[in-house]
Design a protein around this nucleic acid. Structure first.
Lengths: 336, 336
DNA sequence: TTGTAAGCGTTATCAA
DNA sequence: TTGATAACGCTTACAA
């Protein structure tokens, strides 16, 4: 194993000079810098991570806490994890993966041992058990998701209310009057999951402004539950021509069922999905969809942690603007 | 921050005693052990990771290298990542996430810096650029996937040939004679991706043994490409009654197209998918599918790395047995 | 602009 | 069964 001392000897300088060349924390004359850099590459030197952490009081690692089972669509979780890793690397940081099966104690372990300098929590809940640990240990952290009490925390999330509003806006613009919102499973609303409620209220508010009639139906996402939701919707409001779906599992069934019931999309019924782009693209017809930038979520979370590590102040909450991409599944309301 | 020295003072013993209580590397009398353990919990001591790595020459971290873009269905990648993390924790190890955008150099960095003691590579290709680095640096590693040359390496993968055989077997048992295999995109076969070729040859071999007629059609997975593949199949072999699909994207389109063409599944045509369970469950009809245990892949990879770290010999290749779960999409061949 | 040297918090060897 | 103590490889005052 090549050590800093060996590099120093090889370059004919002191150890501290090598260290300073690496860290850039003091100015070095070009000739020495070059000698050192040559020595480094000739010997294939890589600083020892443990020693660096011990002496420098910084592990250059951030922990990413992922839930075992999650509300978040898995490919999106992965996209976030990857964007976090890439963004962290651009700051010279690596990412440690922590699963939530250790519970909040995992956080404490990682922070107290100095294994990680900071933490990013994914899939944060309104009343998240990990937050007290964060406060108690004073760990530098960024949250993806919005807890009930954000005081002193740094959070990034999609602007779900804005996303809901966008759906209402789009369908109203197309002349639809009766809209059904097919949502997550009832349990999700019963435990007051923030993203679900925020989307729904953003949607409802804008719908009210635009004078739309709205029906909200929770849905498990299975074929059967979607069929149940749809038939109730059509029974209660036969004039429904617009559908907003916020439930990945319900999309496929909904499209099949509309077809089966003789409704052509988008001529007879318009469908707007709240889902990731790749999902929207893979259906036939391709779905008009509202999406938030998942990789941006990861990137910003990393920026937040880095800012906190360097004692730069950060805003408490940052919401990312969603985008509606019109595709083939939405069109003008049918004339009656 | 609580140090080992503070614990020692609090317990009235020497630092080394505390260290040995923690590592269990020498026998300690019960009374001292208890005093030390009490001190540890009273002070909330967590050993410093950097110091431990430096002195002990082991970081207790393994790196998991994930591809940015992948052939593997993303939720399965995530499942593997999580099972790796959980399994690693059970050995006192943490997992560092490395993306492949650093290229093979990322591996070298992580190994040479002592950041990780070992490495798990996901989505390994036949001629993987990361393998030379592994050999050159002598890094302890486990590969998920099978490279062309496995000498000296520890690999785990699904038994794709077995999976293919299982599909042929199942359809033959049901009396089907003409089977179409709807595969991955042509490019996947052109670059001789191991899993694709192994599945296909396993399938072909068993089909031949059972006297089945077989048609293999690569497919991009889009609606259009699936439609193209299906119409060619039905043109070339109108008597085709069995379909094997190994392309997540093609499943939905195939089911729609069969329905559209007036074929009822499973009365007129049987479909067997090579895909993860959750995917098979979410279609209507639910799909008979062949699946490999993804979490087992992660678990075994960790065991392999741990064995290598402790100089225990390991087999070069371990293939995990796939399972066929019969569901609603396959049934007896129609009588002619 | 560069060098010297004192830690950082463990582990593990050598004694006792 | 336990205690001193010398590494481990780096960072960072403090000197020069």
């Amino acid at each position: 194993m090549v050590t800093l001392a060996e590099v120093a000897k090889h370059a004919g300088v002191s150890a501290s000079t090598v260290s300073y060349v690496l860290s850039g924390k003091r100015s070095i004359s070009s000739p020495t810098r070059e000698r050192v850099e040559r020595a480094i590459s000739e010997l294939g030197y890589h600083p020892n991570a443990g020693a660096r952490a011990l002496a420098g009081k910084r592990s250059h690692i951030i922990a990413l806490v992922v839930p075992l089972r999650t509300d978040v669509y898995v490919p999106v979780m992965m996209e976030i994890a990857i964007s976090v890793t890439v963004a962290a690397r651009s700051h010279g940081y690596d990412v440690l993966l922590i699963t939530n099966d250790e519970g909040p104690e995992g956080l404490r372990r990682v922070a107290a041992s100095g294994l990680a300098d900071g933490v990013i929590l994914m899939d944060v809940e309104l009343d998240d058990a990990r937050i007290p640990v964060l406060r108690e240990t004073g760990t530098h952290a960024a949250l993806i998701g919005l807890p009930a009490d954000t005081r002193g925390l740094a959070c990034v999330d999609h602007d779900f209310a804005g996303a809901g509003a966008l759906c209402a806006e789009h369908l109203a613009d197309l002349g639809h009057q009766d809209i059904a919102f097919i949502g997550y499973a009832p349990g999700v609303y019963q435990r007051h999951a923030g993203y679900a409620e925020r989307t729904l209220s953003g949607f409802r508010e804008r719908a009210a402004q635009r004078g739309l009639r709205v029906l909200h139906r929770p849905c498990e996402g299975s074929y059967e539950s979607t069929a149940g939701a749809l038939s109730r919707i059509l029974a209660d409001r036969p004039d429904t021509t617009g559908f907003v779906v916020q439930n990945e599992g319900a999309i496929g069934p909904l499209l099949s069922l509309l077809r089966t019931s003789g409704r052509v999309v988008p001529e007879d019924a318009s469908v707007v999905a709240l889902c990731p782009e790749p999902l929207a693209e893979q259906y036939s017809p391709r779905l008009t969809a509202v999406t938030g930038p998942a990789h941006e979520l990861g990137r910003q979370a990393v920026e937040l942690v880095m800012n906190r590590l360097d004692d730069r102040p950060t805003a408490e909450v940052s919401l990312l603007t969603p985008v509606l991409t019109p595709r083939e599944s939405s069109g003008p309301a049918p004339v009656r």
